[in-house]
């Protein structure tokens, strides 16, 4: 009895002590306030995208109001001072450069990622992966400089003559533009730029495929390569797609590096050696200077809107695709 009353007394003292010195109530209030503030911040950031779209749309409205959308997207005439704004050459320029970049980059990056994830020893991998991460951080102007110094001369002096000799029959390889500045140069620069992105993401995805799955395949007698091709890659497929998408959207929106090597001629490219003029370069080269021409800045912001909407569509689309195929 004595023990118990002593215990109760003690506990009462303790709890009084607590409320006084720790003032739990005000701490809780602070916690709640912080929670609300953080939530507000997160929600503010998450409405940035709609705000961006709204801003671009409002600013591009003058041109959308006076021009038909299909004319804007599919007309090839770009004469701002006469009021014709056809984005088609620029859209094609972006598509050509991005496609060439992906055609070069995807197979090379994936083969490298598979090699690093499946065949190299951990020590070698621990040396190479930081290198690749490091190179992902190289600024795009540096890639541009490299393009000007190395890629363009290489195309002009090595690729073009051999294309003339061996591939001249195909219109895709016509060398009517002798400068070396063009789709292929932009594509190569972009391809190298997205190497580290695709490699880093897909290597990680491939390595997270459980070892037990590989062992299951090995223990029915499948070889390493068969296991990789039939099991590991199938399992890693959604992640690999995500890696490629990431690379694509980086290549698609890249400005400076491309601008420096694609030649910037308003035309629809027909050969990989033709000069092109991607949307990003259009904005970078002209925005802020041509305010005197009516509708010009509305047109350029329209171009920015197209870029943003494409990135948006890609992101949501790839999410939907991934959600659908991620069985297993």
């Amino acid at each position: 009895m004595n023990e118990k009353s002593k215990f109760l007394k003690n506990r009462e003292k303790l709890s009084r002590h607590h409320t006084k010195s720790f003032s739990k109530l005000s701490r809780d209030r602070k916690d709640l306030a912080a929670h609300k503030a953080m939530r507000a911040l997160a929600i503010c950031v998450s409405i940035l995208v709609p705000v961006f779209i709204l801003v671009l749309f409002l600013r591009a409205r003058p041109i959308l109001a006076t021009h038909n959308i299909s004319t804007l997207l599919f007309s090839t005439t770009w004469r701002p001072n006469q009021g014709s704004f056809g984005f088609f050459p620029f859209i094609m320029g972006t598509l050509w450069v991005t496609m060439v970049a992906m055609i070069i980059s995807v197979p090379l990056s994936l083969l490298t990622a598979i090699y690093l994830a499946e065949y190299t020893r951990p020590k070698v991998r621990a040396f190479i992966m930081p290198l690749i991460d490091l190179l992902a951080g190289i600024p795009s102007v540096v890639y541009g400089i490299w393009g000007v110094l190395t890629v363009v001369p290489f195309i002009q002096k090595v690729v073009m003559p051999s294309a003339d000799r061996w591939l001249g029959f195909s219109p895709l390889f016509q060398t009517s533009n002798p400068t070396g500045y063009g789709v292929l140069a932009g594509g190569i620069v972009l391809a190298v730029m997205v190497f580290p992105i695709i490699i880093a993401v897909s290597e990680e995805v491939i390595r997270t495929v459980p070892l037990g799955l590989r062992e299951a395949s090995w223990s029915v007698g499948a070889s390493r390569w068969q296991t990789i091709r039939r099991i590991v890659l199938r399992r890693a497929f959604p992640g690999v797609i995500a890696a490629v998408m990431l690379g694509f959207s980086r290549a698609f929106g890249e400005t400076m590096a491309v601008l420096m090597v694609v030649g910037n001629v308003v035309q629809i490219p027909h050969s990989i050696f033709d000069a092109a003029y991607p949307l990003t370069a259009l904005i970078a080269n002209n925005y802020g200077e041509m305010m005197s021409i009516p509708l010009y800045d509305a047109a350029l912001l329209g171009a920015a809107l197209i870029l943003l909407l494409v990135v948006l569509t890609f992101n949501i689309g790839s999410r939907l695709v991934l959600a659908r195929i991620s069985y297993s």
């Binding site: 950031v45 940035l48 995208v49 980086r250 698609f252 890249e254 943003l308 990135v311």
Partner: peptide, 8 residues
Amino acid sequence: LWGTPSIV
């Protein structure tokens, strides 16, 4: 936002 081109 991550994918949005910096020119935008």
